[in-house]
């Protein structure tokens, strides 16, 4: 079964040759379990793209595979270059970075240092200068800018462990952004944020995208995904089951089913499913 065709009858398809990230037939299996099955998709530069799906659908595994944390089959092109054989830090050096669902902050570094580590790109010989003149922080303005943007300026010397969950989430996002990556993969950035914080986050992501950084956002929280994303992919049991702009996704019966289980009224959903499925035969 090819899900390639089903992914994008939309603008990003036409823009295939200039896709920032192109994924073809990505499959991840461990043990007997196939967590991601032949997923193909394109991400256009400058967009905010979302991926939703129930718990355990394979969203995080998908990001792991894109970054190189988990072995995967298939082809991944970033900026026109194949990256699927590169190590994680090599992919990061090309301009791909991510956040983690469990945040994975550097708990032994202060908030500011968390951002500095991500902003700096020292050379191998830097160590010899470092033991003599340590404080050569050329990226300081950028770090300050982001600390301001996420409202952490007053906490910059604290350890992450002393922050609230929302602030920790902010550190995680700021740390990813400060590296000036071309593509940010955000894994559940809305988790644990209250409604106001989510609105702030949504706005921030739109601004970042407007500045030219592309965003790939995994979340199952519709409050965040729907108003933020230009385009949404839906993953269930490792497979892409739908793709399109938010409005279409919201009314897609398969999506509703994936979230709520078989509806109380089976026939209705089945009918709706067929109705939605028919016209875009290649849509599924």
């Amino acid at each position: 079964m090819s899900t390639t065709a089903g992914v994008s009858p939309d603008p990003s398809r036409a823009a295939d040759h200039e896709a920032l990230l192109a994924v073809r037939d990505l499959t991840v299996s461990y043990g007997g379990l196939t967590a991601v099955k032949r997923v193909s998709l394109d991400i256009a530069p400058g967009s905010v793209v979302g991926m939703i799906g129930p718990n355990g659908a394979g969203k995080t595994t998908f990001i792991d595979a894109l970054m190189g944390y988990t072995p995967a089959q298939g082809r991944i092109e970033f900026l026109g270059q194949r990256i699927d054989q590169l190590s994680v830090h090599r992919r990061a050096m090309l301009g791909l970075t991510r956040t983690f669902q469990s945040l994975e902050l550097f708990e032994d570094l202060t908030v500011r240092e968390n951002l500095q580590v991500s902003a700096e790109d020292p050379k191998w010989w830097t160590i010899f200068l470092d033991v003599i003149i340590p404080n050569r922080d050329v990226r300081a303005p950028r770090v300050d800018e982001l600390l301001d943007a996420v409202g952490l300026k007053n906490y910059e010397d604290m350890l992450p462990a002393h922050l609230s969950h929302g602030d920790r989430q902010a550190v995680s996002i700021a740390r990813a952004m400060v590296s000036d990556a071309r593509l940010l993969l955000l894994d559940e950035p809305g988790a644990g944020l209250d409604r106001n914080e989510k609105e702030g986050l949504s706005q921030l992501l739109r601004e970042v995208a407007a500045d030219g950084t592309t965003i790939f956002l995994i979340d199952h929280d519709m409050d965040l995904v729907m108003p933020t994303c230009d385009h949404i992919f839906v993953l269930e049991f490792g497979e892409l089951i739908a793709s399109g702009p938010p409005d279409r996704i919201r009314s897609d019966p398969r999506v509703i089913e994936a979230y709520l289980g078989t509806s109380g009224d089976n026939t209705e959903v089945a009918a709706a499913e067929r109705a939605a499925g028919e016209p875009g035969g290649e849509d599924r």
Binding site: S87, F100, L105, F106, E107, S118
Partner: peptide, 12 residues
Amino acid sequence: RANERAAAAARI
């Protein structure tokens, strides 16, 4: 020391 996974994502 803190987190090898996250370090790799930060180009280390």
